[in-house]
């Protein structure tokens, strides 16, 4: 039994503790917003927050989450109100959309640490997230837009 919190909800999972957190989220908890892309921490599609740190859930055993707080894309906001979600909509970022949960979770951490990121900061924070459709230019714009919204106090 592994106990932790997901999106502020306490969960107890009867699952092999070596199971990657990704698959525990997707298959045991039905939180399919977090995606499988590579399984070897190369693409970032599975990015979630563990105690406020961005991790690749495809290589993190669920046991690593024990007693901790996990935030997934479903917990970013309940109503599309997160400045990044609003900026993603405003810039029409997603194409196929598959990588975007991971992109958003990486970007969310970036903005928490650097509320006014430079392009270099964005490169550093986002380079671990692959997008095959090629939405990088719009992701960059949307992060700047979200940072602007937060600076103007439009954020939560």
């Amino acid at each position: 039994m592994v106990s932790f919190s997901v999106n502020k909800r306490r969960v107890n999972l009867d699952v092999d503790p070596s199971t990657p957190l990704l698959w525990a989220l997707r298959e045991n908890l039905g939180l399919t917003g977090t995606k499988y892309g590579c399984g070897i921490a190369q693409c970032g599609a599975c990015t979630v927050h563990l105690n406020g740190e961005a991790i690749r859930s495809c290589v993190a055993p669920v046991s690593r989450a024990a007693g901790k707080e996990v935030t997934t894309i479903e917990g970013l906001s309940s109503d599309l109100s997160h400045p990044l979600q609003r900026a993603w909509i405003a810039e029409d970022v997603p194409q196929c959309g598959y990588c975007q949960s991971g992109q958003l979770m990486s970007a969310a951490l970036l903005l928490r640490e650097k509320p006014q990121p430079t392009d270099e900061d964005i490169d550093e924070a986002m380079t671990g997230n692959i997008c095959r459709c090629g939405t990088y230019p719009r992701i960059r714009k949307a992060i700047h837009r979200a940072a602007g919204m937060m600076a103007k106090g439009e954020a939560r």
Binding site: R26, G33, Y36, I73, W88, I89, P94, S101
Partner: peptide
């Protein structure tokens, strides 16, 4: 015109084949 499918692609709700239950 803004895309109609963006909202569910930024909150994890969009269902891809791999998400089917």
């Amino acid at each position: 015109v803004k895309r109609l499918d963006t909202s569910e692609k930024v909150n994890g709700k969009a269902v891809f084949g791999i998400d089917v239950k």
